[in-house]
């Protein structure tokens, strides 16, 4: 039985087949974390929205979903990869000149433009700063269109703070409030010690008219959302970036399901009110 509708999209590019990219630069960020700058071997880098991810494939090892943490004007993607498994370990060990497969970008992005006219609170925990960095860059590039901007950053320790070279210029700007905290530190650390949700009451923003962008480990996001809600931020103005197992990135493999959502296509960036009921159910 031929289908009732003819489908012009069937001729489109197969979302499974990667494009070949070359590792242009490897930057060690943390002991177990590197940033890879990847440029396409043929053609131009596709457009992306801050918050989206690519599927990176290491030859003979496999594929992993890695958020886009920066782009360069030369047309390359930057991905920050932490070596936690076989695939991410192989990606984090790549050398300049290696060819990798890349497909994407996939998923939803931070709705940065929706925050125009309002205050913006960005809350990043650990590697959660990676997918938020392009959003922060977009905010700062268009700074006049937003109200107050607060960037709250948490990490395990001073040594594991991501992108210190990016944080420093943000901290120097008079029109951005950057608060940094770490969970654990020695007495030589002059900064804050405490968990990142604890920064929420310390930041200056109008809870009635602000948008919050939150990314980090799920527990950190739950506590942060609680702090934001306590401060009076409406659930529908809080956006979080979820993480689940992903194989296909287009909603076909089923692995990333989070209740009714496919994190790969309905996320990773999701409005908190859409998932609030699921957030605290174990093993969803």
């Amino acid at each position: 039985m031929s289908m009732a509708t003819t489908d012009p999209r069937a001729a489109g590019p197969a979302p499974f087949v990667p494009q070949a990219y070359r590792v242009e630069e490897v930057t060690r960020e943390l002991a177990d974390t590197v940033s890879l700058r990847l440029a396409p071997l043929d053609g131009a880098r596709p457009d992306f929205r801050p918050g989206q991810f690519n599927m990176l494939w290491a030859f003979g090892v496999g594929e992993a979903a890695i958020s886009i943490s920066d782009v360069e004007t030369d047309g390359s993607f930057v991905h920050t990869v932490r070596a936690v498994g076989a695939v991410s370990g192989a990606l984090a060990g790549l050398e300049v000149g290696t060819r990798v497969g890349l497909r994407g970008p996939f998923g939803t992005g931070w709705r940065v433009a929706e925050a125009r006219g309002a205050d913006v609170v960005v809350v990043a925990g650990g590697l959660g700063l990676a997918p938020l960095r392009p959003a922060i860059q977009a905010l700062l590039a268009d700074r006049a269109r937003y109200g107050r901007v607060a960037i709250l950053v948490g990490a395990r320790s001073p040594e594991t703070l991501l992108y210190p070279e990016a944080l420093a210029p943000w901290q120097r700007r008079p029109d951005v409030e950057v608060l940094v905290t770490v969970d654990h530190a020695g007495a030589d650390w002059a900064g804050r010690v405490g968990v990142v949700p604890g920064l929420v009451p310390r930041a200056a923003f109008d809870a009635d008219d602000c948008v919050a962008l939150v990314c980090g480990p799920e527990v950190m996001m739950r506590f942060t959302v609680a702090a934001l809600r306590h401060a009076g931020v409406a659930a529908e103005r809080i956006h979080v970036s979820m993480e689940r197992n992903m194989k296909c990135a287009v909603g076909w493999c089923g692995h990333c399901q989070f209740g009714p959502a496919f994190v790969c296509k309905d996320g990773p960036v999701m409005r908190y009110d859409a998932i609030a009921d699921l957030f605290s159910i174990p093993e969803v």
Binding site: G125, A155, R156, G194, G198
Partner: peptide, 18 residues
């Protein structure tokens, strides 16, 4: 109570091993 909650979160060491 807030400090107790924060301490619990700290104890969880949510950012994983380094």
């Amino acid at each position: 109570v807030k400090r107790l909650h924060d301490t619990r979160l700290q104890v969880l060491d949510v950012y994983g091993d380094d």
